[in-house]
Write a protein that binds this DNA or RNA. Structure first.
Lengths: 184, 184
DNA sequence: AGACTGACGACAGTAACTGACAACGCTTTC
DNA sequence: GAAAGCGTTGTCAGTTACTGTCGTCAGTCT
């Protein structure tokens, strides 16, 4: 028999999600999360850099998805179209984890500290998209602008999707948002 | 004679700026800031909700400026033009405090935690712009999009201005960024 | 068999933040 | 002009996020 129960990290994440929904982010301590997962506080911090991070790790696939979206975009696409292609992949990924993504959004949305972290992560994604654009030969300023604007559009669409009650897909919301943005 | 030296809050802010530049944000404790200002740690937290906030309080004029910019925009301006008018006011305000704004940006840029807070504050400003647009009769989605996109453009321009070595004004950077964004 | 590794617990310590209460110059009230 | 109330600070004790260090032991490697 193994010395410890397996999947410590996953157990911590599940325990955290439960407790955050029950008592809110500030209302639950790291010690409580660890206890519910059958571990100690110290072990929690071996898996996550800080308390918030428990909701954000495991998102490496996101960057990969974005890059894949950029690579697949047609060679003659404008920078903004490339950004749209990248973020469309993201929308699809959220759609695949629909229920999880939506409850995760609700938890984050209820706490300013978590919203900050979410924005920071999204900013890193925007950086990643900007990098991809530069590699395509887009100049620095345009790359930054296209990625930032694309991210802004994505965020409005994502928020609307996560809080919507109709069954429309994330990609549908995103397409609509980009169309409206271009019309501005 | 007064019981205490006046301007406790300002003294704390100055002490914090100095220490953050000398030792970095993480390298200075709240106790040290308070000591340099001739106060106690407890008093620091009476003036600022948390350690980061010492760099962000006193920014109420910003919202007022944005609103004024919106109010002054011509009645037939598009939502994005209204947002541009609002953010132009902001650019002017930063230009007036040129040196202060630029060193403040350098301090914030050196620390992810501070960048998070900056983004959150900027997000609130975007909300404010969106509110102003809605009051002008712009529908919810377009208001959100215009303010978010406008904010994205502003942020790229602001970063470029804060790190630039030529003497161009913040407004010049902003105008250029908006022109390029529209060309996307 | 013995060395090594990896994931964990135990414990002590720092620093951010909070609540409760006391001190005391200043202002208001009678 | 004394008393009462107010506002800003100090003091102190406490909670919680987070870190460093060391010991433990099942599984793996040699």
């Amino acid at each position: 028999m193994a010395r410890w129960e397996p999947n410590a990290q996953t157990r911590l994440q599940q325990a955290a999600m439960e407790l955050f929904r029950e008592r809110g982010f500030d209302g639950t301590s790291v010690a409580e999360i660890a206890e519910r997962a059958g571990l100690t506080e110290r072990t929690f911090f071996r898996h996550f850099a800080d308390k918030r991070e428990v909701l954000f790790v495991g998102g490496d696939w996101v960057t990969t998805d974005l890059r894949a979206g950029i690579a697949d975009a047609p060679a003659d696409a404008t920078p903004l179209e490339v950004a749209e292609a990248a973020f469309s992949r993201l929308a699809d990924a959220f759609e695949e984890r629909r229920e999880f993504s939506r409850t995760r959004h609700a938890v984050i949305d209820a706490n300013p500290e978590l919203m900050e972290r979410e924005r920071r992560k999204l900013a890193l994604l925007a950086d990643s998209v900007a990098d991809g654009l530069r590699e395509r030969g887009v100049d620095e300023t345009r790359a930054r602008l296209a990625s930032e604007v694309g991210m802004a559009v994505f965020r409005t669409a994502y928020t609307r999707w996560a809080t919507s009650s109709d069954g429309r897909t994330a990609r549908a919301y995103l397409r609509e948002a980009f169309a409206q943005a271009k019309a501005l």
